[in-house]
Simulated scan of single mutants.
Amino acid sequence: MSFPSEERPQPVIAVVGPTGSGKSDLGVQLALALNGEVVNADALQFYRGMDVGTAKITEEERKGVPHHLLDTLDVTEEASVADFQKDCRAVINDIHSRGKRAILVGGSGLYVRAALDVLEFPGTNPNLRQQLEEECKSKGLASLRARLEEVDPVSAARLGDARRVVRALEVYGLTGRPFSSFMPQREYFQPALQIGLGVDREQLRERLALRVHRMVEAGLQQEVERLDAVGLRSGKTASRALGYAQFLKVLDGKLTEDAAVEETIVATRQFARRQLTWFRADPRITWLDWQDPELVTKAVGAAAT
């Protein structure tokens, strides 16, 4: 998208990278330095009450910087990237209209792309989705994958789990277009700068293990118990979150606390690897060392160029 120079909006600054790399802290520091406000792009931090297990930034840690799109959903609701795109762009426009800088912070790759890139989202049809889900249960995933192979071989080769295969068939049934045709191009919707936090992978592995142990000490199991009482299990997105899924098994007597901790650590490390793979594939990201003493100064400098 191009703008006449006199109408060109301030670039959105996005802080991206794997979980545990310090994105939230850098977002606050950038906002303080650039008269900005933070916009959350972490899908699990939309959920009210999911604080300990998502390492949600506290009021004290926000240092007075306004934060948007935190605590917008109940755990029973399903996060929608299409809804996020609409809400996020409205918030960014509002921030910029007040002469401030929008600082997008998050590690949910598709949500970051939805906020920043030219990206179209097809609609949904609950009845069609239910039919496909029932077919998957009765005939098996292989049957649905075979159907997807016929109409969208690109998606069939790329998608593995039942939820995504069902979604791809739903989109084809609604639009007559293959799901793969809706995949984003690397084209910004409006001017943007992405700052990625480059990590030492072994140090990150150690940090993530320590982080999970600290979450448990801070009351993760008690948080899961509270959320279970208000419908956590019925939430398709929230119930599968790292730590929450494992500690629901503790409540059910299927895992010990120690086993849940280890399972969460393994899953978190795997998630961080997937995040790194996702973000490393985007050549537009400016990478900075997460432990550089000059990190904030360099990030501010990148935002000013």
Rank of each mutant, 00 (worst) to 15 (best):
L159P: 08
V212T: 03
R211E: 13
A168N: 06
V151N: 04
Q203G: 15
P184R: 05
V165G: 05
Q190I: 03
Q194W: 03
L197R: 00
V212D: 01
V151P: 01
A168V: 05
T175W: 09
L208R: 00
E149P: 07
L197A: 05
T175N: 08
P184I: 06
V165E: 01
A218L: 15
G176K: 06
H213P: 02
S180L: 13
D161A: 11
R167H: 11
D200M: 07
E170P: 07
R177W: 02
A162Q: 10
I195R: 00
Y172L: 04
R186Y: 07
H213K: 15
R211Y: 06
E202G: 12
R201M: 10
R201C: 06
Q221P: 11
S181C: 03
G196K: 00
E187K: 14
Q221N: 03
E170K: 07
V171H: 00
I195T: 00
L197Y: 02
R205G: 04
L204S: 01
E150K: 15
G196R: 00
Q190V: 07
L208F: 06
Q203Y: 06
V212R: 00
V212P: 00
E202K: 15
P178Q: 05
E217A: 11
E170Y: 07
Q221H: 13
S180Y: 10
R163F: 09
L193S: 06
Q185D: 11
G173F: 01
E202M: 13
M183L: 14
Q190Y: 03
R207E: 05
R211M: 14
V151Y: 03
G176H: 04
A218S: 13
F189V: 02
D200I: 09
V154S: 07
L148V: 12
F179Q: 05
R186V: 07
H213A: 09
F179C: 08
T175C: 08
P178L: 04
E170Q: 12
Q203R: 11
F182A: 09
R201Q: 11
V171L: 05
M215Y: 02
R201I: 11
V166E: 03
T175G: 08
R214N: 12
L148T: 11
S180W: 08
V199T: 13
Y188V: 10
R163Y: 09
L148M: 13
P191C: 05
Y188I: 03
S180T: 09
L220I: 02
R214P: 00
P178E: 07
I195V: 15
A209N: 03
L220P: 00
R186E: 07
E202P: 06
E149V: 09
L169I: 12
D161I: 09
F189S: 12
P184W: 02
G196Q: 01
F179S: 10
A168F: 06
V166N: 02
V151R: 02
R214A: 10
V199P: 00
L204C: 02
R207H: 13
G176I: 05
V165M: 07
T175Y: 09
S181I: 07
E150C: 09
A156K: 08
G160Y: 13
R205V: 10
P153K: 12
D161E: 13
